[in-house]
Design a protein around this nucleic acid. Structure first.
Length: 112
DNA sequence: ATTCTGACGTGGG
DNA sequence: CCCCACGCCAGAA
């Protein structure tokens, strides 16, 4: 019996494809998964991503480019540090040049 | 079974 | 851009 990849698993795969110095939004991932309105579930999946080392959740932010999930990285500026380390400029938990660093799975993995 | 919450997004004002 | 309200699905209590 075929085990369909759960919503969670798909999210992890996509996030894993995110190149360094790039960021994406929950909605973009949700849309790629076929449920553009289930953006919340993407965030929810990320919540479980803490058990995974291959899921750079720090590269996933909301559509505003705000590090909404930074509190889940330890409560400090961990998330910001990680992104800046990859060349992403961040001010006040807000990503600068979001469009420039934005990585859309639908565009990059459209045939994936 | 119900109820609530949640790292969001969209639409209207 | 801001603010408010609704929807969306999955999991926990």
């Amino acid at each position: 019996m075929t085990v369909e990849p759960s919503f969670f698993s798909k999210v992890y795969e996509v996030v894993r494809q995110i190149p360094e110095g790039k960021v994406t939004s929950y909605g973009a991932i949700a849309k790629y998964l076929g449920s553009p309105q289930s953006s919340r579930m993407v965030g929810w999946a990320m919540n479980a991503s803490h058990s995974l080392d291959d899921v750079p959740a720090h590269r996933v932010i909301n559509r505003k480019g705000l590090l909404t999930g930074k509190h889940h990285f330890g409560g400090g500026t961990i998330m910001q540090q990680l992104l800046e380390n990859e060349g992403v400029h961040i001010i006040e938990d807000q990503i600068q040049d979001l469009e420039k660093h934005f990585w859309d799975p639908v565009k990059s993995l459209e045939d994936f």
